[in-house]
Design a protein around this nucleic acid. Sequence first.
DNA 1: GGCAAAATGTACGAACTGGTTAGTTTAGTC
DNA 2: GACTAAACTAACCAGTTCGTACATTTTGCC
Lengths: 224, 224
Amino acid sequence: MGGPVSTPKLKPTRTQDPEGTRQNIIEVAAQEFALNGLAGARIDEIAAKTRSSKRMIYYYFGDKEGLYVSALENAYRQVREGEAKLDVEGMAPIDALRRLVEFTFDHHHQHEEFIRMVMIENIHHAEYLERSGVIRDLNVTAIGHIEAIYAKGLADGVFRAGLDPLEVHWQISALCFFNVSNRATFSKIFGRDVGAPAAQESLRRQTVEMVLRFLVKDEKLGGI
Amino acid sequence: MGGPVSTPKLKPTRTQDPEGTRQNIIEVAAQEFALNGLAGARIDEIAAKTRSSKRMIYYYFGDKEGLYVSALENAYRQVREGEAKLDVEGMAPIDALRRLVEFTFDHHHQHEEFIRMVMIENIHHAEYLERSGVIRDLNVTAIGHIEAIYAKGLADGVFRAGLDPLEVHWQISALCFFNVSNRATFSKIFGRDVGAPAAQESLRRQTVEMVLRFLVKDEKLGGI
DNA sequence: GGCAAAATGTACGAACTGGTTAGTTTAGTC
DNA sequence: GACTAAACTAACCAGTTCGTACATTTTGCC
């Protein structure tokens, strides 16, 4: 059931474009899956929005689930590549942490489609993520930044001891993820559009502050 | 489109039981929708698991979406009723806040089905929640606790000024909601079962501490 | 008991949907 | 230019799924 062999495109003038077709299908599929879920997305609908055809979806991805997994992998890869752009080298621990939280907040905000894919994957108890060996590898470094920053902060004596970097990552993720994932119900229930620029600006500031106040030693709090 | 008239059951010997049938259908439907989503849930499957039949689903709820909205309303009502049991009257602000966060953490943890319904509803951009006037009314008091606790804490001089109770509620919700909603992907990606009792115990403690450190004045932090 | 309304059981159908079968075109290779 | 494998098209199929038509039983009420 292996896919087609990846052929390096030697000549740009070709009416056939395997990689392009494949990528185009994945992008359309990601949109549809993120919008409607795995069961809700329609293969015919995806095919129609593609530059290609339904037949090609089955040609490249086997079945609906195969397409979903590929779209999921693609989403993770894209987002992780974006995250790699964060550079906090050489910054003081508190500044680096602030930067990390701001970056995560903005990054999640900008990648709503990815957030929705993760939501959907959680609805499915992450069974497709489990099926994909690719994704796990992409994420082992996701926690590297926190670990480095925390270690430096400890050494500098500005962070409290005894915290678990993974738990800190969990908390930052929770605040930044929820901001996108639950915006709809939260806004409807409380009659306030928490997605509006002003509200986001405020939530962003409070999120940063919350994380800093959690990490920074009491006696150093005056400086943040 | 009104439902059947609520008939007080005078005689215990009756083969027909409208309210019971209705409730039974809603409970089964909630399970299925929470598990598979709106599109993923199957009416026939729901019907089969019911004490009743498919015919009765359409008799009482009109169509699939009507059933979904009813299940959603039921989930919100149940959870809000549970939340009403929280009593922090007369407690010192810091203790009350700690209690509130612990309660919210546990409550979300215990109502995974509800969390999943909210996730699904967010996937649908909360359009069914919007359609239901019932749910909005149920939530206006959801923020009352925070407001009261924060006001008292300000008066007592133990909380920082200038915070928005709704934003605090947002933060508490984020931490407690994410803990349930994203457990699957988080556990898979980092190879650590964050749902395990020990992990939950730790996350619970850190969540409480994070919220307290955000609200409590710097110079009062020694006491928490 | 008679009656209307509510509640329920059975069987069916039309549309949708994932997936396939069969065949055609394009491009690299000798 | 013939040949082969990859890339692609179009029509089709079979199982599923929501929803309904029709018949029947139960219940409250006089």
